[in-house]
Design a protein around this nucleic acid. Structure first.
Lengths: 207, 207, 207, 207
DNA sequence: TATGAATGAGCATTCATTCAT
DNA sequence: TATGAATGAATGCTCATTCAT
């Protein structure tokens, strides 16, 4: 009953705990199910306590997204470093992307499946937006691939978005769809990247 | 003023009226704006009456979605009947699917993006499940296409799922993401289907 | 526990009960202490129930005032009928006014002691405002009295307001001040009206 | 940053600082806007600290009022000292009283209009009670005036209370009633005091 | 068949206050 | 002396739902 007995942690720890719990709530329930009260009771504190760490619901939500974005961005940056050829880099990147999503489903859901447009609570620094980041990354790789002849000449913007949309669909499905008899995840990822790469690839002549 | 005067219809009629009104609310407003009370007042009946026809809110929502997705299924069936080639049929089907999702974003959300895994009680009739339907449809078309040589030999299950995942990703993005400077929807759909079709297509010989 | 067992009353009855309870709450506590929840629990109903009878807090508050105003106005109308001379009428009116206030302290407090200006919830039809009513009544009586020579020539507006203010002060004190050793109420009313009448009266005789 | 660095003052000093800040908040904002937290942050101390100097919110409010009303008492004492005649002194005192009320509406409300009867625990020190003070003051002046022949023979207690009631009514009205087209405040005060003084005055001359 | 009456749980947020340190 | 951490209770209001009729 005594709070200091229950939680002998530093201020930053509790802040983190709140953020994590909030993201989990988001990801496991739907957006509408999130509430300050449920969050509070989930971490075993009173609702009031949350307001000691975040100014209000909107602030908390923003922090959750920011944190999540940062982590996702970090992963995306690393993709770029490991490139051999543009097409190989895309292939590797798509796989890494899905694997991140599957490994961090709650992060992914918060960022991409949360009805952000309708909720003005979610308005973040656009330079942080992972949607934009991966889009520009893909766009650059496509451009390189077209230049090198690996990739057939395609409209950059729409194609980059299409690729992203496709891989996002796979990520979403692997995260949300637990009942439908999905193929082994790995095999599905393989098939999907093959399909996309093949769709991009220049028709190889005499072959 | 007398309800029996107002509505001298059979049981099935009122049920339909409720469903139609609910679909309207769903189609016009946002998902969050839907409420049993508003629905009731919209059709001029008491809130209680709705519970005579549907066990609860979720049940009603499911019926609404089922009804609406039946339209999609119907459209897809027709495509199948009128298709010239498997590949063309797939192309037309993908477009129809995305257009359906964009036209009925609330339905699409309820079926694919809202707490599916958590509430197994509230699953749609599996034979009606739009995910399953399009999967089996795709699978058949792929099989046909491979047989006819239009499509390169691919593993049927994983490929059908990949295609679906891709198009689902596009649908999701078009529904949720309103801020990112998306290409014109049409053009994006075009690009996406091209990409996928191209990925499926047999490498064309001597070309 | 069963609502229909607890309260077998008609719809209008409960409405009245709510109004009465609300006025009592207002009058006994301060304005800030009023709450929909407290009101609800006071009458033994859930908070939600109140919203079946009034659209919201503001509506309820307005009805309380309206009702109270009406009763006070009714009393004031009657004063006018019983006049002999303007000065006598004023005297009788002042007494009637205080007596109404003392007899209906809660009504009086709601109307005059409730911080209305700061609360936009209290904005009523001005023709109903008893402050205006008694003011115009007084003004007319003063005018008559000055014409007849009973009352010394005084500025009508300011004097009417002064009289009202004075008697309002007495009413307020008799209602609120229960500890201070107040003279017998009757005697105080007598003194007060004497004082005011004397202040109004023309300096008599040869002067 | 270190509190002891910030405020190296004695206990009495901080107490004063709190009172001053509270009086400021009270004087500038509305009564409803006052809160312990806001007060604390205004003076740069934690909310907890206030409770080292005042038992609770009501205690603090009482002290603020007491302090402020002491000003009124002081003003009234001075009038008494410099008065030319009892009647003049009463006139000046009435004006001073109303002007004080209008200048400190929140204080006046707390002392005279807020749940006095219900909370006997929270009464002001009776020897400080402004109601009592002005009553006894008035009583003495009346007595003097009657002795000197300026004021007609009147029952002291009831008359003192009547005068007070009248002026209290004006004060209350000026504080609460902001909508009704009140005469210019000054003029109304003038009229009111005239009326009362006239009511007190001995019937003059040959009569 | 349909309803009117009613409810409990829920929402974000603010408040005065307490307690161990 | 002063604080940081925490809380319980409260606010107006809406929701899905129930129940007796």
């Amino acid at each position: 009953m005594n709070p200091s007995d229950r939680h002998e942690r530093g201020r930053e720890d509790l802040r983190k705990e709140i953020l994590n719990a909030a993201r989990d709530m988001f990801a496991t329930g739907s957006f509408e199910e999130f509430s300050m009260r449920k969050l509070a009771s989930k971490i075993g504190y009173s609702a009031t306590t949350i307001y000691l760490y975040f100014t209000d619901r909107r602030d908390l939500l923003n922090r959750v997204c920011q944190e999540t974005f940062a982590e996702l961005n970090h992963t995306l940056e690393q993709l770029l470093a490991t490139a051999s050829s543009p097409l190989n880099c895309i292939r590797a990147g798509l796989r890494a992307y899905v694997e991140f999503a599957v490994a961090h489903p709650n992060h992914y859901k918060v960022v991409f499946l949360l009805d952000r447009p309708n909720n003005p609570d979610y308005r973040l620094d656009p330079t942080q937006d992972p949607g934009s980041r991966i889009y520009f990354l893909l766009r650059r790789l496509l451009s390189d691939g077209i230049d090198s002849g690996e990739i057939r000449p395609l409209e950059l913007d729409a194609t980059a978005q299409s690729i992203w949309a496709s891989i996002h669909g796979l990520a979403t499905l692997l995260i949300l769809e637990t009942e439908f008899p999905l193929e082994q995840r790995d095999r599905l990822i393989e098939t999907q990247t093959d399909l996309l790469i093949n769709g991009l690839a220049a028709q190889n002549a005499s072959k």
